[in-house]
Amino acid sequence: MLFLRSLLLVLIFHLSACTDLLDDINPSDSDRRGDFDATTIGYHPGETAADFASFDTLNETVVMSAELVGSNAIVLYFTMWCPVCDSHMTHMRKNTIPNYPDVKFYFVDYVSGMISVARAAQLSNGYGSSNVLVDDINHTITNLYNATMGTTIVIDNTSIVQMNEDYKDGRKLQEVLDALP
């Protein structure tokens, strides 16, 4: 009993200090997404995506609004060249990209900060033929879209954010691309 009491006290102490823990200890299934519409510029699905300019690893300037001209949508996937990222990117290259020729796909390197370093990571990971954008050292794109490792963003050709969440198994991305206007 002494052991259990001690255990309980330790748990209560930690839980009271870290309220975020309760999200995992008692997960919720409630849908708490807000209502967002195109009148607002933001990163939530339904909002108008903020325009941005960046460099790719070939030192070419990429402007989001320009890339959307003549395309159905652009897809941004945020990578830190980790096992999970590689698994997602491999899956995307094999199962999604070939099926949507009118969509432009970009992997966004948000950890390298320099074109030369991002290019080296791209090549050593076997993504030499992919489009890789380099987020700057201030993480402008990452912050603009509240992104992190594995974040997958779909922006349609009217600049509306259609998806902004983890890649997971890729099904949601395909559903969103299939439902594009």
């Binding site: 999200d23 849908d31 708490r32 997404r33 807000g34 992190t148 974040t151 902004n164």
Partner: peptide, 16 residues
């Protein structure tokens, strides 16, 4: 199995 309704602080469509 668990419910998920947010990822990295952003609410998403709930799934298991």
């Amino acid at each position: 199995e668990r419910d998920v309704n947010q990822e990295y602080g952003s609410f998403v469509e709930p799934y298991k």
